[in-house]
């Protein structure tokens, strides 16, 4: 898995936990700050590697099951590495009635991913849905990392993906 995973190999040098220690200290190693700690860890690694979760648990003196429990409860936490570009299709009510699903299907088809395997093999893209981005006035909405695209169609969504692929190939 690791040799396939540019994220893990990229961060292997930082796996000495110095970054994690900095994060833990920032929150005074307070177990009640577990969620912001995991958020900061995820910002660093782009997902929550198992050994880091164990390290956090030990440092906070809580059972690893509690850390794992929190990590699996909240949808923001990822236990598997995500792609460089996270494409989020909004499937809130407004986007849904304005047909967001055909857009999702078009993007998934273009990238060869599915709900079960949301990340491309080269870890360039992860495609997922979110329940509402609160930009309902622009429905349907697609988010690529932090960039919001409003009133997208299956064609324009695929065009956005193509544009990124071109940029990455260059």
């Amino acid at each position: 898995m690791n040799d396939l995973n540019p994220v893990a190999s990229m961060s292997s040098s930082t796996r000495s936990f110095t970054k994690v220690c900095e994060i833990l200290d920032r929150y005074h190693r307070d177990p009640s700050r577990l969620i912001p700690i995991l958020q900061a860890v995820q910002d660093e690694y782009r997902y929550l590697p198992p050994e880091v979760m164990s390290f956090v648990a030990t440092s906070l003196r809580v059972p690893p099951a509690r850390v794992y429990g929190v990590a699996t409860f909240y949808s923001h936490f990822a236990l598997l590495p995500k792609g460089k570009y996270v494409v989020r299709l909004c499937n809130g009510t407004a986007c849904h009635v304005k047909r967001s699903i055909p857009i999702l299907e078009a993007v998934q088809r273009r990238l060869g991913v599915s709900d079960a395997r949301p990340t491309t093999r080269d870890f360039l893209f992860t495609v997922e849905t979110v329940s509402c981005l609160g930009a309902c006035g622009l429905a349907p909405v697609m988010l690529v990392n932090d960039q919001v695209h409003g009133q997208v169609t299956p064609e324009s969504a695929v065009a956005i993906i193509e544009e990124i692929l071109r940029k990455e190939a260059a």
Binding site: S32, I35, P36, R66, Y74, F77, S131
Partner: peptide, 25 residues
């Protein structure tokens, strides 16, 4: 100020409190 972590049920007040306390919501 605390940022949620993506759980709809945390809009329920007792679940939100659990989340601030660092637990499953």
């Amino acid at each position: 100020v605390m940022e949620g972590a993506g759980a709809f049920v945390c809009g329920e007040e007792t679940a939100l409190i659990a989340s601030i306390e660092g637990k499953r919501g």
